[in-house]
Design a binder for these strands. Structure first.
Lengths: 355, 355
DNA sequence: CACCTCCAGTTTACCGGTAAACTCGGCGTG
DNA sequence: CACGCCGAGTTTACCGGTAAACTGGAGGTG
């Protein structure tokens, strides 16, 4: 049952049937109704989107690529919020969203490439993936509009558009906030520097090996802030928390506390939540004995006990903007979106005497 | 730059180029390599997925339809878990996922229909939408494989496959659990009976008007369990909590407590979380003064304080199974998947003297 | 040595639409 | 009354592939 069958039944040209669906004003209402009715009787489901897309050279959908396995990405509040922005923006243009599987293991890389190569989309939104992500490379090869969000920053003009936030500035502000409160011994919690679930103390060589740019930027911002307060980068304990779930942050927190830390700069709110949870378990008072700063300002951050001091970035807006950049030709990407320190209840003055 | 251009450049037939990409064994490795190399030099991005899909009559993607606005669905833990299952199952078959916008308002219904009509997918997964959802109707018209999860149950054989869980049985078990502990005055919390954010006490007529089948089933299960313990349905306070966020559950909880209730059956874990939060704020001891049972067993349920007694349903498996049913022809849909009462820390014996 | 088989490609026939250019009768206008 | 224009359809030319059937030469077989 195709468009031409319907046309034949009615004795009109197939174009007229096509117009009945897509351009009502190109034929009389009467004929149009007759066509639509016959189509229904015949069980014709309407123009095949695939064929229409081919002829029209566009499909009305965007592909979204995550660094992680999809199931994992959907548990990350920040990624989710971003996705909500994308969905909201796409909605107003009746754009579909194709979530693309991302590689967990190396064997899966082939699957990802395949999926990206064959994805039926008009453009790609690449959300915070590492630079050598197989999906990213495959997406670039597609030669369709592409916007990279957060990282990796494009190396050349052929790499597509870019949208990022001021990670460095936000981290810097967070660090200055703590030093301004008198803290001198401050630890840094990182979700991950490289793919994988590695966790433990991360010395300078490990820090230098970081392949995730956002992690690099935030770390650099923290260290710059501390350095400006006279705290040398080499003396700052940095812990990597394999993957960044709150659970992983617990162990690191204990080590840092044992190390005499009075402030913790957590690179994500999820990590900060883990810190708070662990501190509560250890009966360490926040912010009396320990100050904590997160990053992202996910909705949950306002609901922790006490509410989390954090660095806000416009997660949802980032999603909206990414879609606009992708779909409205000529739109200019702004410089990095601003971040803001949001002071809530988890930061306070340096305790009088070292714990 | 098309497949034929590449073929012309090399002096081979276009089919051979196509084979170089899709059926390596149909030509010599040498020629294949030569083709792939030239293609790269020419900047040919590989076979157009749209054209390939048209010729092959399949696209390698599934559409997922939610009842709510997409952004909203992504905040619902149960929906998310289901989606993770779908994503995981799709992943192994290199299936893309198309999230389809759903209507928030009536004006958006047209958008939804359009999106569903033009979605480039091989099948639809319809997750718990009301029976007259415009997207559902549009999806059925597409004439491609379709599976409805949770609701609405198909009325006829042309309505596609169905996958549900034993909501009634789970709810019944939850009610019996409370009555078994001696509770007599028990309130029921419902997320919603009909689309919209209505909240407040829901009398019999409102209950009868419920358009969401899952809500109906669970309510019926609760009431049956209570009835079997000699508690007449008419005497049970039922509250609707517009949309089902934990916040909305708070007000209802206060009313129920004032009403002398010692047990609350919450239709979702999200609602139960709201109850616990409110009870804590009111310094009502759980389970000493108030027992609470949730439904779904989202991961968060095990982490509440105290851990939530709830009814488990296999959310993630439901997603996996839905995809399998859709993609493996001949697979038989099981009867409703089982639910299990998981007793944790929020339920205890009826307090000795009425509060 | 004639014949069958198999490999490596080629020919041909779609897949199901969209869009630009063209036709044709009726109507308002100078 | 001739002319240009407009609305309502039609003609024609793609869109960019895939797959089944076919060809021709090399190698194996009896």
């Amino acid at each position: 049952m195709t468009l031409r069958d319907v046309a034949k039944t009615l004795g009109v040209s197939h174009t007229t049937v096509s117009n009945a669906y897509n351009r009502p004003q190109k034929l009389s209402d009467q004929l149009r109704q007759r066509i639509l009715d016959t189509a229904r009787e015949l069980g014709y489901p309407g123009p095949d989107p695939l064929a229409a897309g081919l002829a029209r050279r566009q499909v009305g959908a965007l592909g979204v690529l995550f660094d992680e396995d999809l199931a994992y990405a959907l548990t990350d509040p920040a990624a989710l919020l971003f996705l909500q922005g994308v969905a909201g923006a796409g909605r107003s243009s009746a754009l579909g969203l194709s979530l693309l599987p991302a590689p967990r293991s190396d064997e899966d890389a082939a699957l990802t490439e395949e999926a990206v190569r064959t994805a039926l989309v008009d453009g790609f939104v690449v959300y915070s993936v590492r630079g050598d992500h197989p999906g990213l490379l495959a997406a670039r090869r597609r030669g369709i509009p592409l916007i990279v969000v957060d990282e990796p920053e494009p190396a050349g003009p052929g790499d597509g558009m870019f949208l990022g936030v001021d990670d460095h500035g936000g981290a810097y502000a967070a660090a200055r906030h703590l030093t301004g409160l008198g803290h001198r011994r401050i630890g840094i919690l990182v979700d991950r520097f490289t793919p994988g679930d590695r966790h433990g103390a991360a010395g300078p060589e490990r820090q230098a090996a970081a392949s995730y740019q956002v992690a690099r930027q935030r770390l650099a911002g923290y260290l710059a802030g501390l350095a400006d307060a006279g705290i040398p980068a080499g003396s700052v304990p940095v812990w990597e928390c394999g993957g960044g779930t709150p659970e992983h942050a617990g162990a690191a927190t204990q080590e840092l506390l044992a190390d005499g830390v009075t402030g913790i700069l957590a690179m994500t709110d999820e990590l900060a939540r883990g810190v708070l949870h662990t501190a509560a378990g250890l009966r360490v008072d926040v912010p009396g004995e320990l100050s904590v700063v997160g990053f992202d300002d996910i909705p949950e951050a306002a609901r922790t006990q006490p509410p989390l001091t954090t660095v806000r970035q416009p997660l949802r807006d980032k999603g909206v903007l990414a879609v606009e950049l992708l779909t409205r030709p000529g739109t200019q990407a702004p410089p990095r979106l601003p971040t803001h320190l949001i002071v809530r209840g988890t930061t306070g003055p340096q305790p009088a005497s070292p714990s």
